[in-house]
């Protein structure tokens, strides 16, 4: 499966490029392993589905052409035919087989993508606000708004929450999205193969200026990343509580950078409701919620 599954996206890509919009079809040009896995599954599913569609359309066309109510139509007319046992059972079995072809890799990939393939991935705490993205780097102690810098060639774990209505955190060229929800911290890992520049956006409508939820993503070499963080720590201003409250307001802003940030701005417990009474701790320290 591996080898041919790799060739089909290439063929598709070629078609897309020929069509003239290939460079924009970000989903078909994944720049990281997550997006690649997802694309492979998409291609597999579309090929399987294309077979079904083609079969149905050919069958329907033949039926329509052959059995028109026209004078002199010699095709058989059998008004009393009620069905065909074997065919009817086949209708159930064949789609089930085709779906199995999609289902097996779906299960495998779903479980595979749920694990970060690294012991200590770089962690970025993502908070969606009205209408801006706040990125905090707990390891580097720096924070940015609306622009994200990540090291290329290694998995990055995003921990995503929201201090405003829901959004989804999405960098289409690196891989799929995950919701940013208040009161919950959801994980998502992505990786960029090589240094590069991408864009991200939100997929969940969040109010008037939702369209401004674009953010830029820059993947750089790990060395460049370290020096970027170090540079930020030296030159950028620190984020104060007042700064955070300004970010909470219903505004849009450009790119911002901070050399540190108050710890309470991201919830400390990363999982929610469990049966055993593991209660979710509210963001008690957060004045916005009192």
């Amino acid at each position: 499966m591996r080898t041919w599954a790799k060739r089909i996206p290439l063929a598709l890509l070629l078609m897309a490029v020929l069509a003239g919009c290939g460079q924009h079809a970000v989903m078909l040009n994944p720049a990281g392993p997550v997006g690649r896995t997802e694309l492979n599954l998409m291609v597999l599913a579309s090929v399987a589905m294309a077979i079904v569609i083609l079969f149905v359309l050919v069958l329907a066309t033949v039926a329509v052409v052959r059995f028109r109510d026209k004078k002199g139509n010699r095709a058989p007319y059998t008004p009393q035919v009620e069905g065909h046992k074997v065919l009817e059972v086949l209708w159930f079995i064949i789609p089930a087989l085709i779906l199995t072809v999609i289902a097996v890799p779906t299960v495998k990939d779903t479980f595979a993508l749920a694990k970060v393939p690294a012991k200590n991935p770089l962690v970025v705490d993502v908070t969606s606000l009205d209408w801006k993205w706040l990125f905090e780097y707990p390891g580097q102690k720096v924070a940015t708004v609306n622009h994200l810098v990540i090291p290329a060639g290694q998995p990055v774990l995003f921990k995503i929450t929201s201090d405003a209505p829901m959004n989804t955190f999405w960098i289409p060229q690196l891989g799929g999205m995950e919701y940013a929800m208040p009161g919950r911290v959801l994980p998502l890992w992505l990786e960029s193969y090589k240094p590069g520049v991408y864009w991200g956006h939100s997929g969940q409508f969040s109010g008037r200026e939702f369209e401004k939820m674009f953010f830029s993503v820059r993947a750089v070499t790990p060395a460049a990343f370290s020096s970027w963080a170090a540079h930020l720590r030296k030159t950028a201003p620190p984020m104060t509580v007042a700064d955070y409250h300004r970010l909470l307001q219903f505004t849009t802003v450009g790119h911002l950078s901070y050399s540190k940030y108050p710890a309470f701005t991201f919830p400390s417990v990363t999982h929610g409701f469990t049966l055993k009474g593991g209660m979710y701790l509210l963001m008690h320290n957060n004045p916005a919620h009192d």
């Binding site: 896995t37 599913a45 589905m49 779906t106 993508l113 989804t168 289409p172 891989g175 799929g176």
Partner: peptide, 16 residues
Amino acid sequence: GVMLGAVPADYQFHNS
């Protein structure tokens, strides 16, 4: 719709 049911692919398609 079946393509959307393939979970990892849906991570990309969702709300697009």
